[in-house]
Nucleic acid binder design. Structure first.
Lengths: 238, 238
DNA sequence: CGTAGATTTGAACGTCCTCAAGTCGAGTGG
DNA sequence: CCACTCGACTTGAGGACGTTCAAATCTACG
């Protein structure tokens, strides 16, 4: 295998998206310094670590957590294949969050210096970097909206629908998903307790909006689940 | 006045931060296409508008709001002088949030094409753009943490302390602040109702942690207010 | 002064949290 | 194969906090 990015099945949703063939060839092996395995529950980086590289999640899944100096903490996002990790460190040159693998995973290591240089030479790469940072900003604004305006069941529904959409965009089923995170982690992300998450799962299942068994999830009709967020009245069980 | 950025009192916290004198001279008048006045309660842009420019808040203050297609909506941030507006539009080429002036304000209009070109030529400018995007990402992660893990009074305290710090960074008093946003807007941002915000103000005032009259706010001792977030026991009134 | 909008306060209610117990599932060793 | 154990998850009961609804108060401005 001569190339890394050129032969990667994620290149349609990764940093090289939009690059011409010659550009792609040019950056190949100049962007990714290495691929790094991260075992389940291991940290890719921790808050406070010096920032040196951006990471692209190549296989597996991650969570990012933010802690206050006093110890309060929370999951601030879940990452799937093609998502970037480490953008939080660019400003202060130190990572601001923890990144933890939810399963055995592999990331592409992109030294930030290399990225800077290549972004300088290849306009399409710079553009794509900006787009992905912009996307993360929009994502977090949507999380804020959900945390601030939705009730427990709706938050869970919004989270699962978002996950469903992202899985589908990656070529997986939108209706049959294996959750890689615990109820605890879902609760932390949604600003709810484990108990409330569990109860919300049960209530949604009682309405036949989803079926969940351990970490296997099925969403028979995503549109019906979406109605829960649109404020559309769903007929109660007669 | 020959220059715009070179003579701007915000250049120490704006995009040109870190540029050498020659670089600053070079970008001057090549970065900012115009300064645009936005009257109180007017939109700078709306969700769905075509994205063409980034804006730097030069004078005044803004809020950004995000709405769902169904009409639920929420304030996702407040911007002060030197803050960027419009980064949300880079990815999709359409703005994803509304930006509304909280008072009569002035923004510097930076056409995104110009910014791209200049960022290409001036490495320090590109670096600073990346830093400011990274900063917005970190900011939103912190908002998520606050929304997910803090009680009402703590949220308000965290919000006011953050505002205090940002005012101080801009050369204003950290202890005496005029709020530019309504209780309603604060509540929306914090995921609380107006009534709860009002009650939280009253309770904090009863503890003498702050004094508020209409939109004039005084925080006699920010550290004591900070204790509320650190989980430090504050002596109750005997 | 009078009005409209913003803010504060009160009272009742509901959602979600806390505490507690019980269930389930995977891995381990008998 | 089964019993055991530990952690993850579920379910229940009671209580706390924030919301909802309602009314009073305040402020800005004509």
């Amino acid at each position: 295998m001569r190339s890394i990015c050129g032969a990667c099945n994620l290149r349609e949703m990764c940093l090289p998206l939009g690059l011409s063939a010659p550009e792609l060839e040019y950056i190949d092996r100049r962007l990714v310094a290495a691929r790094r395995k991260v075992a389940r529950a291991e940290h890719l980086f921790r808050s406070g670590d010096p920032f040196e590289s951006i990471f692209v999640l190549w296989a597996g899944s991650f969570k990012t957590c933010l802690f206050t100096p006093e110890g309060r903490g929370q999951v601030t996002g879940f990452q799937l294949g093609g998502d970037l990790l480490g953008l939080d460190g660019i400003d202060s040159r130190r990572h601001q969050v923890d990144a933890v693998a939810l399963e055995d995973s592999v990331v592409c290591v992109i030294p930030y210096e290399w990225l800077q240089d290549l972004a300088n030479e290849v306009g399409a790469l710079r553009q794509q970097l900006h787009r992905m940072m912009s996307r993360e900003i929009v994502r977090t604004h949507n999380v804020i909206l959900h945390l601030g305006s939705l009730a427990a069941e709706q938050r869970l529904a919004a989270f699962l629908l978002n996950l469903s959409n992202r899985m589908q965009a990656r070529g997986f089923s939108a209706t049959s998903i294996t959750l890689r995170m615990s109820r605890e982690e879902i609760g932390s992300f949604l600003g709810l307790t484990v108990e409330t998450v569990s109860r919300s799962f049960s209530k949604l299942q009682a309405q036949r909006l989803l079926f969940v068994r351990n970490r296997d999830l099925r969403i028979p009709d995503p549109r019906r689940l979406q109605h829960l967020l649109d404020g559309v009245e769903t007929e109660r069980e007669s």
